[in-house]
């Protein structure tokens, strides 16, 4: 039992990072009605970008975050029109085709990463990597590594920024209008194409930035993408599809499950546990933990 507070703490610290991925991910779904299979691969490429930029420039990964964001947001902004073209085609089944397209991208990205980076696993060094806080109170002892704490601070900052963007700006109003009803939003003067490109760019940028952090906290490898795609999906479905307010809770739950399996059980079984939970939740309440999904 004495390990439990530590497991919960680790879970919160880890779960915070998943929030950023899942919010951007479900935002893209809301606007483009497409689930991006390549989400994990964007994270993976972001992690590698952080790793190599750090190696070349020697700057701390946290300072590199804006650079990585701009780089990847640009890539996402430029790729989105292709996805838009697939989705708005009148041949075949556009929605399925969009899905197949991102799936193809994911396979291609994986192949490219394995070819270029190989099978090795690395980790990005940061100033926060070494230190840790040790708290002893009420007979409990907790160790908080400073890099994980920095990760949580990052996650809160990004979540707050996204919240501001969505609720307080004209751009956010347009995004929410598009998610609600694409045609009406278009009639009210929202430029659907432009907004979708921006949202996709934002999502790719945030995913890549989070990837940099995951590279610092956990590790960087070419095969890491698959895992995070499953995690992003897990959080979004558990939260209820399209219900953004549920995302933080679902993300924290995922973090808990992971850290509890790491401490008490075999970490190799985490994926099984994640899927078992997902399966049961879908059987009981297909609209997510809160029953508020679409």
């Amino acid at each position: 039992m004495e390990l439990l507070p530590q497991a919960l703490m680790d879970g919160i610290l880890l779960g915070g990072i998943y929030i950023t991925i899942a919010i951007a991910f479900s935002l893209t779904y809301g606007v483009m009605h497409i689930i991006d299979f390549a989400v994990g691969e964007w994270i993976m490429f972001g992690a590698f970008a952080g790793y190599y930029l750090n190696k070349v420039t020697g700057l701390d990964p946290f300072l590199l975050l804006p650079v990585v964001f701009i780089m990847f947001a640009l890539v996402g902004y430029l790729i989105q029109p292709v996805i838009h073209r697939v989705l708005s085609g009148n041949k075949g089944n556009p929605l399925l085709m969009g899905l197949v397209f991102t799936f193809g991208l994911a396979i291609m990205f994986q192949g490219i990463a394995l070819t270029v980076f190989g099978f090795y696993s690395n980790s990005t060094p940061s100033v926060f990597s070494e230190g840790s806080f040790f708290i002893e109170k009420f007979g409990l002892s907790l160790t908080i590594s400073s890099i994980r704490l920095a990760g949580l601070v990052y996650a809160l900052a990004i979540t707050a920024a996204l919240h501001y963007l969505l609720k307080k700006t004209n751009f956010g109003l347009g995004v929410r209008a598009l998610a609600l009803n694409r045609e009406s939003a278009g009639l009210m003067g929202v430029n659907g194409k432009q907004t979708a490109s921006l949202v996709y760019g934002l999502y790719v940028g945030v995913s890549a930035m989070t990837g940099v952090l995951i590279g610092c906290i956990l590790s960087v490898s070419a095969q890491m993408g698959t895992e995070y795609t499953i995690f992003a999906f897990f959080v979004v479905v558990l939260a209820g599809m399209g219900y953004l307010a549920g995302v933080p809770w679902a993300a924290l739950l995922l973090g808990m499950v992971q850290s509890i399996f790491l401490i008490y059980f075999n970490p190799g079984h985490t994926l099984l546990a994640v899927f078992a939970i997902l399966y049961i939740i879908l059987l009981i309440s297909p609209r997510g933990l809160f029953g508020r999904g679409v």
Partner: peptide, 18 residues
């Protein structure tokens, strides 16, 4: 390389021959 080609074939055939 086969993995890359496989992914590219999927993506390209979706775009050009849906």
């Amino acid at each position: 390389l086969y993995l890359i080609i496989l992914g590219a074939v999927i993506a390209l055939s979706v775009v050009f021959i849906p």
